[in-house]
Structures are given as C-alpha cells and as structure tokens.
Simulated scan of single mutants.
Amino acid sequence: MDQLKLGLPKGSLEKATIELFEKAGWLIKPAARNYFPEIDDPDLNCSICRPQEMSRYVEDGLLDAGITGKDWTMENKSDIVVVCDLVYSKVSRRPTRWVIAVAGDSDIKTIKDLEGKKISTELVNVTKRFFADKNINVNIEFSWGATEAKVVAGLADAIVEVTETESTIRAHGLRIIHELMQSNTQLIANKKAWDDPWKREKIENIALMLQGALNAARIVGLKMNVASDKLDGVVSILPSLNAPTVASLYNQDWYSVETVVSEDIVRDLIPKLKKEGAEGIIEYALNKIIS
C-alpha cells in the first residue's frame, strides 16, 4: 500500500500543527515515548522532527513532505518544492520576525555599528549572507539556545533571534535595531515525491485542507429569517465573501439569509441585524473555507 511519509514539527509548533490538522480533518495522537504519532489516515506515516532539520530530511527523501519554517529552508538552502505557505504559529496567525537586537543601553544604533562585533544566533547561514550583502564584517557564532541572555551576559554584542510578540526580547532589556526577515510555516515536498502522481495528489489534498482550515480562523457563519419587506435593509448591511445566500421559505413571505463574516464584527453586526428586522439569528463555527 502506498504511504506518504509526512514530517510534523517538534517543539513550539507541534501543538498548533496537531490542532490545525484536526481542524482540517486528521486526528493525530502523539506518542509519549517516540517520535511516530498515530494518525487516522492509512495513507500517511508521520514523524516528529525538529523544524531546523525538516528541510534536509525532505530533500534527502527520508520524508516525502513536511511542515517547517521558511527560515530553516533558507538556512539549509534546501532543494525542495515549496507547496504552500501556512501562516500560523504557536500564538498567532501572523508571520514571525527574525530581528537584530542589542542591549538597551548599547551604543549600537544601526547595523553599520556592528562592524567588527560579535553576533550570536541559531540562524547562522542566513545571518552571514545578510551581513555579507551589506559589506559589514561581523563575527557570527552559533547559539545553542537562551540566545537573548548572551548579550546580557556579555558573551555577544548583538543577537539575531526570532520573535512574535517581542516580549522575551523586552524582558531581557534588549532593543531591536533591525528586522532581518519575516518567516512563516510552509508545507514542503521532496522533488521525487512531487513527481509521483499519487504522492503529489495526496500532498496537494493536504495543502488544500490545511489552507481551508486556516482560512476559517475567526470566521463564522450567520443564518437568519427575514420578512420580505425587511430583506433589502438586512442584506444591505451584511458583509460576505461574495454575496449572502437568500432562499425563500416554503409557503411564506419570508426568506432565509445566510452569510459568513469575520468573528470580530459579529458583536456589533447582530444588534444591527435585529434592528433591521432579522429574526432567529444563528451564529455557527466554521472548520474550513475552501477558496
């Protein structure tokens, strides 16, 4: 039986990825003592891998596809297929940022002031290429973790670190002087697997469902009944992806109106709909929106 070898990211992205797959239709049960979680799809064979190593495993064919960060694909300069972007993280639905930070009281104000300085980072190759392109000579050292503390302890003049909210950077008294790049999660594939018709279709189906689940984030459905003489007023204030669905009720001078809207406007929209004459208003969650 054909199986697709799929890599799932370990660490900060693991929980968010498993939740995303569940919303997309796959139930993944992590195993407590190994890196091979169960999944309710006989076509898939899952492995948990560090995002930093994922693109290498995919490139080498140890995995057919995997989810990792754009940053680590760039770091490894991996020869793989980027199937699609999946913009999510452990705390938000926005890209992460790799930034250059220094001590809050440092004399370093711009990246040019880093000439001859020591920089600590886990993203060594990308950082080297960045400073080489800027013709700025720096000493870049690999950081095994707790990178923010390197500046505090005087082990480095600056760091290149990933952030979502900047809270950890601020907690260490650091100041951001430059944004190196933005990154997001991606579904990537091995080139040989991508050329296999069965595997490619499976990968594309996974991409479709994952993107559909992300599209539905903070989007809800609204359904209501509206009398015919109130219909134009209700429809005029209804946002929708295209246009609201309007269907006549059986043997009545009433209509059923249905649409999808952003969750953050519902609290203001429903009172307005009620005021315009909508009745029996129902709000319901959405799992997927397929474009």
Rank of each mutant, 00 (worst) to 15 (best):
T245C: 13
G66F: 01
D71V: 13
S291D: 15
M209K: 15
N76D: 14
C46A: 13
I270S: 11
A16M: 06
P42L: 10
L62S: 09
L86K: 09
G277S: 10
E53R: 04
L231M: 04
D85Y: 09
R33G: 10
K70H: 13
K90H: 14
S55I: 02
D79A: 07
E141W: 02
I169K: 00
R56S: 12
D85A: 15
E204N: 14
K191Y: 05
A149Q: 07
C46V: 09
E38K: 11
S240L: 04
I39R: 00
G116W: 04
W72K: 07
W198D: 14
L231P: 02
V124E: 02
V81H: 05
A132G: 08
V82A: 07
P37I: 11
V160G: 03
E283N: 10
T73Q: 11
V152A: 08
S143P: 01
M74E: 13
V151A: 05
D2F: 11
K118G: 02
K275I: 02
I67D: 01
A193K: 03
I39S: 04
N137A: 15
L210T: 07
G277M: 09
M54E: 05
I119A: 02
I270N: 08
I219Q: 14
A32F: 07
R267V: 11
S78L: 07
I169E: 00
S92R: 12
D133T: 08
D229F: 12
V102L: 01
I177N: 02
E75H: 06
K274M: 12
C49L: 10
V126T: 11
Y255F: 15
I270M: 11
A285S: 15
G154W: 06
K90V: 09
A227L: 06
T73G: 05
K134F: 02
D41I: 03
T110P: 01
S256A: 12
I140P: 00
F21A: 08
D232C: 08
N184C: 14
I281S: 10
W26F: 04
E148R: 07
I28H: 01
L238D: 01
E22Y: 11
V152K: 14
T185N: 15
Y250D: 14
G7C: 08
K112S: 15
L27I: 15
D71Q: 12
E276Y: 06
I290L: 13
R129A: 13
